[in-house]
Design a protein around this nucleic acid. Structure first.
Lengths: 211, 211
DNA sequence: CTGCCTCGTGGCACATTCTGCCACGAAATC
DNA sequence: GATTTCGTGGCAGAATGTGCCACGAGGCAG
C-alpha cells in the first residue's frame, strides 16, 4: 500500500535520486500519509458514511484542523488514488515521443495506468466497494474522470507544433479513449479477465475516429 | 424557463392529458418549483458559493427543513437540468423502435437532447457559468454524466432479446457516444457553430466501433 | 356536513463538515 | 545563539443535512 502513495505529488524531481528530505518535509508526509492510511482503513472497515473526520483524526493522531489543511474535504481523501493515476497518465504523456500519433501516445499512457491499476488491484477493489456503498460520496467511479480530460487534451496538443487543444477530434479522441478505459476498468473489477492487458488493447483499438 | 421543468419527474403519464392534479400536488410542485427558480436566480446573481440554503429559502418563502425534503443537497438543485436531459434521453430510448441499431437509437435520442439543449441555451449557458465559477460545486459539467451511462446501457440492452448489458461493446458505444455529446456540448457553448445540429451529427458519426 | 386520516410543512435540536484567526513550539536560517 | 519560517492545534463560527415532533389544511368516507 505504501508504494501506492506519495512519490508523485510534489512535482517529481527529474534530478536523480534527490532524496534530501528535510525533517519538516518528512513530518509533513508522515502526517498526510498517516491520515490517508487511517482514513482508508476506516472507510473499508465501516464504510465512508460511518466514518467522521474526527474518527480519522483520532486514528491518525492529528487535529481536525490539520486534516483540513491537507485535504479540502473528506471526499478528497478518497480521490487520492484517482489523482495518482492521473499523474501517472500525464507523466507518461509528457515523456512521450512527438513522433507517434496522438492516439498511440494516449493509449500507451493508458496502458501504463492499466498496469498500475492491476498492480494495486486489491486496494482499488476495496475503494471501489467503499465508493459504491456510500450514499454521500459523489465519486462513483474510482477511475479517470471527465474533469481531467481537458488537461489531457492540452498535453496532447502541446506535443504538436500548432498546439491546438480546441480541435474537437482531439477532444473526442481523449473522451472516447477515457470512456474505453472506464469500460475496461469496470470489466477488470467485475469479471475475471484471463488476460487483462490484452483486453485493454482490444477495447482501446475497437474505437476508430474518422479523419 | 418554466417549460424547462416539472412535467417529467413523476413518471410521465402515458394516459392522455391526465391533468387531474389535486390541490396538494399543485402546492408541492409550487414549493419545489419556487425553490428551483429562486435558487437558480440567486446562483446566477451571486454565484453558487455565495448563496446559502437559507437565502434560497427566504427567496422562495419556505423553511430550510422543507428545502431539504425536496433536495438531498444544495448541489442537487443544480443537477436538476442534468436530470431533465437524462430523462429526455431515456424516454426516447424507451420509445425507440427495436428495428434500428443500438447506435442509431442512441444517436437519435442524443439528437433530441441536443435540440433540447439548444432550445434552452440561454439558461444552460448561465448554469454552465455558475458551475465553472464555483469552488465547491462538484458538478463541473452540466451535461450527461458517466454515472448515468450504466442506465443507458441497460435500456439499450433491454431493446434486444438477449438483454445483455454487460457486453463491453455496448458499454463502449454508450461511453464514447456520451463523450462525443460532451465534446459537442462544449463546442456549442464556447464557440459559435453555424449549424449546431449538423455539427452534432458530424461528431457522433466520427466514431466507429469495430464489430 | 362532520369527523378521521393523510401528508406537507416548519420549528428545534443536533451531528458534521469546513474555515478564519491566533498562538505555541519546533525546525530552518543566518 | 537569535530570528524567521512554518506545521500544528485550539476555538469559535458559518453552513449543510437529518431526526423527531406537532400543527394544520387537504382528502376521504360516513
Amino acid at each position: 500500500m505504501r508504494r501506492f502513495l506519495r512519490p508523485a505529488s510534489p512535482a517529481r524531481r527529474h534530478q536523480k535520486e534527490q532524496t534530501i528530505t528535510t525533517l519538516r518535509e518528512r513530518k509533513r508526509e508522515q502526517s498526510r500519509l498517516g491520515a490517508v492510511e487511517a482514513a482508508w482503513r476506516l472507510f473499508i472497515e465501516r464504510g465512508y458514511d460511518h466514518v467522521t473526520v474526527a474518527d480519522i483524526c483520532a486514528a491518525a493522531d492529528i487535529a481536525p484542523r490539520t486534516f483540513h489543511r491537507y485535504f479540502a474535504s473528506k471526499e478528497d481523501v478518497v480521490v487520492e488514488p484517482v489523482r495518482r493515476m492521473t499523474t501517472l497518465l500525464t507523466d507518461h504523456l509528457l515523456a512521450s515521443s512527438p513522433e507517434i500519433s496522438d492516439a498511440d501516445a494516449l493509449h500507451q499512457a493508458q496502458r501504463e495506468v492499466g498496469r498500475f491499476a492491476l498492480e494495486h488491484r486489491e486496494l482499488l477493489t476495496a475503494l471501489r466497494l467503499v465508493a459504491r456503498r456510500s450514499n454521500h460520496l459523489r465519486v462513483s467511479q474510482i477511475a479517470l474522470r471527465p474533469e481531467q480530460e481537458a488537461e489531457i487534451a492540452t498535453l496532447l496538443a502541446a506535443r504538436r507544433p500548432d498546439g491546438d487543444a480546441t480541435d474537437w477530434r482531439l477532444r473526442l479522441l481523449v473522451g472516447s479513449s477515457t470512456a474505453a478505459f472506464r469500460v475496461w476498468y469496470e470489466d477488470v473489477f467485475t469479471s475475471e479477465q484471463p488476460d487483462p492487458m490484452a483486453h485493454l488493447d482490444t477495447i482501446l483499438n475497437a474505437i476508430t475516429i474518422s479523419a
